[in-house]
Nucleic acid binder design. Structure first.
Lengths: 140, 140
DNA sequence: ATTAATGCAAACACTTTGCAATGGA
DNA sequence: TCCATTGCAAAGTGTTTGCATTAAT
């Protein structure tokens, strides 16, 4: 998905600037669900002139193009997910890390709701503790 | 849950001020998933001196006491849910309204994740269009 | 009397916007 | 050349905080 945008003429009017290409490269295959600040921190290492405006501008453009997903698991800040295929998330309540979980068995709305609400997609959030936070707790 | 807090001596140190009692009354049984601003708008009608600081202060106190839930479906603002029992949500992508959905069949993590991630609870988000937005679309 | 809560204003964090300068197409 | 994008600074939105005053216990 993001690889396509790195090539010429995929999205009409989308100019492939050095900043955008660097952001695309950072996002492609990234499973960290980074925030705008994390994108800025990472990409500005190689592009010191990068501005926050460009990061936000690019992320919003990518969201509108459907190339990445905006996820609102964190009330403090928006996070972005380059994985646009159907999948779920496990959120560690200790370290707040978000992990991808394959969408296996489909989840259905209870029958009585089916006619009233037209489900287009669904997203499951698993809250709990990740492996590393579990072992940290055992030690302390 | 919220009814209890309206009575004396339920939460040590929790003072039942007129503002808090009005907020509790507004929240109790409310299924609108209101934001802080919506709480302020509604409650300040009867309590004109109410301040935003008090609304935020009270909502945070209630969240910490486990009396209400903070939900981050909306990246723009936090919403609050007085229903603290296990349930899911249907989000209309047209009008952004959030509806409660009973949690029927339990959702499980794929087997291979089970030992690594200790699931404590799970929350399903159904995205789609609600009945009223469907009929609006048919008309226009 | 003690201590928590109120209301105001200022501060804060995240995100968007206006605009002149830049640079892809 | 044309027009989207950049970078900066200012503005906008939602939330928190400091503090003197008020009021519940």
């Amino acid at each position: 998905m993001l690889k396509k945008l790195q090539q010429k003429g995929t999205l009409p009017g989308f100019k492939r600037t050095p900043q955008r290409l660097a952001i695309l490269e950072y996002l492609d295959g990234n499973t960290e669900h980074p925030s705008a600040e994390e994108v800025y921190e990472a990409v500005s290492k190689t592009n010191p002139s990068l501005s926050f405006a460009t990061v936000y501008n690019t992320l919003n453009t990518l969201v509108h193009a459907g190339a990445i997903l905006e996820i609102s698991l964190d009330p403090e800040r928006r996070r972005y997910d380059p994985n646009t295929t159907l999948h779920n998330h496990a959120i560690c309540i200790e370290c707040r890390r978000v992990m991808d979980i394959p969408a296996t068995t489909p989840v259905n709305l209870p029958q009585q709701m089916t006619p009233a609400f037209n489900v287009m997609c669904c997203h499951v959030e698993f809250y709990g503790t990740c492996a590393s936070c579990q072992s940290k707790k055992r030690i302390s």
